[in-house]
């Protein structure tokens, strides 16, 4: 597996999708590179690029909400944080992602 080519493939696949939702890749290049690498590995392991910061249960319905980009499943939560949980994506107007804390999701 060519890691860089695989990361680029994920980048090209995700960018138009998240842009349409008002998000972009984080300006924090280091985090983006690390997270994409983890997703390439998760993709190789599970056949799906799951979020590197959410635990899987093996329950297909529950784990579907952890498939990157998982923004649609957590829209209100991520809009509140102006970032997704793992920090791969931020709102389009975000320049300094370090200022955006992880806030627990409010369950119904």
């Amino acid at each position: 597996m060519d890691m860089e080519a695989s990361k680029q493939a994920l980048r090209e696949q995700f960018e138009p999708i998240v842009t349409a939702m008002g998000f972009k890749f984080s300006p924090d290049k280091e985090i983006v590179e690390f997270l994409l690498e983890q997703e390439v590995n998760l993709h190789a392991q599970h056949g799906i690029p799951f979020c590197p910061c959410k635990g899987l249960t093996g329950d297909r319905t529950e784990d579907m909400g952890k498939v990157c980009p998982c923004i649609p499943w957590h829209r209100a939560h991520f809009d509140r944080m102006k970032r997704c949980w793992c920090g791969l994506y931020v709102h389009l107007d975000v320049d300094d992602p370090d200022k955006l804390p992880q806030i627990p999701e409010e369950l119904g």
Binding site: I31, Q38, L42, P52, C53, C86, G87, Q102
Partner: peptide, 8 residues
Amino acid sequence: TLSTCPWC
């Protein structure tokens, strides 16, 4: 934690 998570 998760071994894949940078925040962890």
